[in-house]
Computed example of a mutant assay.
Amino acid sequence: MITIYAQLFGKEFVNTLTFDELVIYLKDPQCIFWIDLDSPTLDEIHQIQDAFNFHPLCIEDVMSYSNSPKLDEFDEYIFLVTHEPRMHPETNEIERPEIDFFLGKNYLVSVHHEPSPAIAKSIHRCETQLLYHQAALYEKGSRGRTAIKDNFMFKNSDFILHTILDHIVDDYFPLVEKWEDDIDHLEEHVLSVRAERSVLNEILKLKRQLAGFRRTVSPQRDVLSRLIHLQHPAMSKASVVYFRDIFDHLIRVNELIDTYRDTMSNVLDAYYSVLSHQINENSHIVNIIMKRLTIITTIFMPLTFIAGIYGMNFHNMPEIRWEYGYYYALGLMGALALSMFYFFRKKFWF
């Protein structure tokens, strides 16, 4: 689907242009256009390519998924590949849908194959400003001037790009704040309870999320740095300070992610430390049990020996016919058992 917003000659702001009308007005540098392609068909992509004369390699990048953000500079436009990372509500894994931009001196073309919250917010802002602008046209004075001043479509096309990128980066912070809360919870949980497999799964999942998010933020920061220092007709001097503000936010987010990754490494070390302590405790308990069983076995060994001797069926055994032989054997076994028990207790083995 193709959506077109147009500012015509610094006076009109419309969203009703047909594609053929767009091609005609596009030649006038006093007009500003934002063309958004949402899940475009192959015919729509070729239609845009023919109208703007985009390079085939750029169209190839638009039609296929790019793993890394990139920036390519051409004579008439800048081609920018960005990602809008977000967390999947069911799997809690980081998704990285791609948004591609063609920034010209008086136009911005955005292409995305999945719904984009940043694009949706920018479109909503356009629709709101459109209504406000149409209402203000009937009034003279400050309100009409304010409607034009606050509408980014009445600035250069790079301000449209700034608005979308600003929405993308602003959506990073709720994710970062959520991870901060999750890390605090894990730190408390690791140190207050026994090391469980579920805790380890949570730690590894959070580390995986942070790593996936950093793979997007770090290259995106580098691409934006190139965009700020780019000398191109599509980039106005007035917009540089606004892009620099986004760049500062990306630096802050990147530093927070690095800090969280270091913290998660420490949490993982603490988990293994607690686990090692639990293993040592279990080993100690097992050793105590084995020692006690060994002592009990040792005490019963001489008793078993005595019982084995007098259990033999030889006729020439004097104690067999002795009246007090039974009591003598029991007394001997009891004395041996008590003596050995006293010896082990004195050595603190029992």
Rank of each mutant, 00 (worst) to 15 (best):
M1H: 12
I4Q: 01
Y5G: 04
L8F: 03
L8A: 01
F19C: 05
L22W: 00
Y25V: 07
L26E: 10
P29D: 12
I32D: 03
W34M: 04
D36S: 10
D38M: 02
Q49P: 01
A51H: 10
N53F: 10
F54Q: 04
P56R: 07
E60F: 05
V62S: 11
S64D: 15
Y65F: 14
N67G: 14
D72F: 09
F74M: 11
D75C: 06
P85D: 06
P85F: 00
E98H: 00
E98I: 01
I99G: 00
F102P: 00
F102M: 09
L103Y: 06
N106P: 00
V109G: 03
P117L: 08
H124P: 02
R125W: 12
E127V: 13
E127I: 11
Q129M: 15
Q129G: 01
Q134Y: 09
K140P: 00
R143L: 14
R143H: 13
R143E: 15
R145G: 04
I148P: 02
F154P: 01
L161D: 04
I164Q: 01
L165S: 02
D170F: 08
L175K: 00
K178T: 13
L191M: 13
A195F: 10
E196N: 09
S198T: 12
L200N: 02
L204H: 14
L210I: 11
R214T: 08
S218Y: 13
P219W: 08
H229I: 09
H232K: 07
A234V: 00
K237P: 01
S239V: 15
F243Q: 02
R244G: 06
D245W: 08
D245V: 06
I251N: 04
V253I: 13
L256S: 11
D262S: 13
T263W: 10
N266I: 11
L268G: 01
D269R: 07
S273Q: 07
V274F: 06
H277Q: 15
Q278C: 05
E281Q: 13
I285M: 08
I285W: 04
K291V: 04
K291E: 10
R292C: 07
T294F: 14
I295T: 06
T298Q: 06
P302D: 02
F305M: 09
G308V: 12
Y310G: 03
M312Y: 11
N313G: 05
F314M: 07
W322V: 11
Y326A: 06
Y326F: 10
Y328N: 07
A329S: 15
L330F: 11
L332W: 09
M333S: 05
M333C: 08
G334N: 11
L338N: 02
L338T: 15
F343E: 01
F343T: 09
R345P: 00
K346H: 15
F350H: 07
